[in-house]
Design a protein around this nucleic acid. Structure first.
Lengths: 291, 291
DNA sequence: GCATATGTCTGACCTAAGTCAGATAAATCG
DNA sequence: CGATTTATCTGACTTAGGTCAGACATATGC
């Protein structure tokens, strides 16, 4: 190793602090203190609920209140009582506020784009950034249910199919496989779960119901930068919880011998090998588990 | 790609801001504002000269002066006039100041260690952090002359030998090669240059003088995370500048056909192939350039 | 319906951080 | 030598950011 771990991390901290500081400085260019800009951005990103905004930004209630009043005086924000609980308030951007928000987004995007542009090995850099972000944000990975046709789900599935294509000796064509209907992977028949790290989808799993007490696990995938963190296990546990919730008692899945980590995971978490239960051309391993 | 580049970078920014913020918070635990802690750390890291400290921390002269006075009142720092210029002042840590400095270092090291500890794929993470730090700190890569036996030089050379061992079909044993004497790569005979990114050595090149007008380029190396940035070219240019400065008119070098990027660089920057000029077992390509 | 809990706001504070215009003293140039 | 430049310090000021106690209105449990 060139340098010990600690000094490498400290060098990283310095480099990154300088870069993030540059972004803050460019935000100041719009003539508003950073705090107000952050509030405006929070609202723009859908955190209109004052309480949610406070948690997200980690601000004192008095301080946030004052910042909101400032933005209201600027004509960028309006706050209204929450429709179902008049104690709570919801902030929303006005037309002018939306324009300001877009301007801040543009600054932020420009900074990101310039970073990629001035570094020749962009994809490698982005991959490294993903890995670091995942490592740092490990405690904040959330598993959520979503529609398997939603953008977050589709981005995972696309990566999943691409990886199968690379790893299976036969390649992989989703049209030849038994692609489940979206409705089978949604309540009340089944479920589709994605793992989100700070909003970015980094893994998924589908629970494909058949209407009865037996369901199938499909599409288990974890993005490369998040492997080795026990995320697949967490996703499987969440899928089993969903199955219990749907009164499903038996889970089945098929897999391929090229996917060694997956087979290892199944064997270690109570799955038992069973006879082939479909005529899909790709799988050559079949498992079952009672929940 | 899972997500577009911009949102990947923005996720990275958020993750890293939270981590750096955690370090700042732990620094506050020592009951001193962050500014004062940074000054103390700057002095501890050898930036005692008040002017240098101001540049390093980017502080206003009045503000730094006040922070220094505060640390003096705490008994952590003493400032003395510069020995050769009584206008300038030099700050130094007292015994108590050194203790505080060590405590801050320990906090910083603990944070770094805990990061590595809670992520199972530590070496991969560190490599990713190196790459990101190099990309972000690209404009701040400095080339400096140093003793080839100094720690910075040795860490580069060790990595260089290891890489030769991996890449040459024959392996590489430095004892069998014509290892230059350190004195040949130091003024007044030659020079040894290292590239430093925020203090971390990431590349080197040696200029081995023979006392006359001919000198040899040796040990050109760039660490993997910094490749593709044109650093080798910059190092070579710096070595040529040093050669001119030493009244050297002809440069020679030997290389191996396995080192394709290096050969390409030489051909593109005015080097011409010549006859073998030594009996070193490893090289099979020989170049010359007039400066 | 009343007591209590919850969510937000207001006023009165405080501190860290930074700016700027001189003051001061030492070095340097002609 | 005197004039100018350089390095640092001091005092007066500003701003951003944050804390805290209580006010106020609305919801919730009994």
């Amino acid at each position: 190793m060139l340098h010990d771990a600690v000094s490498r991390i400290r060098r990283f901290n310095r480099a990154v602090t300088a870069e993030v500081g540059a972004l803050d400085t460019s935000f100041l260019g719009r003539g508003r203190p950073l705090g107000a800009a952050r509030v405006l951005n929070g609202i723009g990103h859908g955190r209109g609920d004052v309480g949610a905004l406070r948690d997200y930004l980690g601000l004192d209630s008095g301080l946030l209140s004052r910042l909101l009043r400032g933005l209201e005086e600027e004509g960028l924000v309006v706050t209204l009582p929450h429709p179902s609980d008049a104690r709570r308030r919801v902030a929303a951007l006005t037309e002018a506020g939306r324009k300001e928000f877009v301007a801040y987004e543009a600054l932020s995007n420009a900074q990101a784009a310039s970073l990629v542009e001035r570094f020749p090995r962009a994809e490698e850099l982005l991959r490294a950034m993903d890995l670091v972000a995942t490592a740092l944000g490990r405690e904040r990975i959330a598993i959520e249910e979503c529609d398997p046709r939603a953008a977050t789900a589709v981005s995972c599935l696309t990566a999943y199919y691409a990886e199968l294509g690379r790893r299976l000796a036969t390649g992989f064509d989703v049209a030849l496989s038994r692609d489940p209907e979206a409705a089978d992977m949604m309540r009340p028949r089944g479920a589709f779960l994605v793992a989100l790290s700070d909003g970015m989808p980094i893994g998924c799993v589908g629970l494909k119901g058949k209407g009865g007490e037996v369901a199938e696990i499909k599409r288990l995938w974890v993005c490369p930068s998040a492997r080795g963190l026990g995320l697949a296990r967490r996703l499987m546990r969440a899928a089993e919880d969903a199955a219990r919730d749907l009164a499903i008692t038996t889970l089945q899945l098929d897999s391929n011998s090229a996917l060694t980590e997956a087979l290892q995971l199944y064997r270690r978490t109570g799955w038992v090998e069973i006879e082939r239960f479909n005529d899909d051309p790709y799988p050559d391993f079949f498992f079952e588990k009672r929940v």
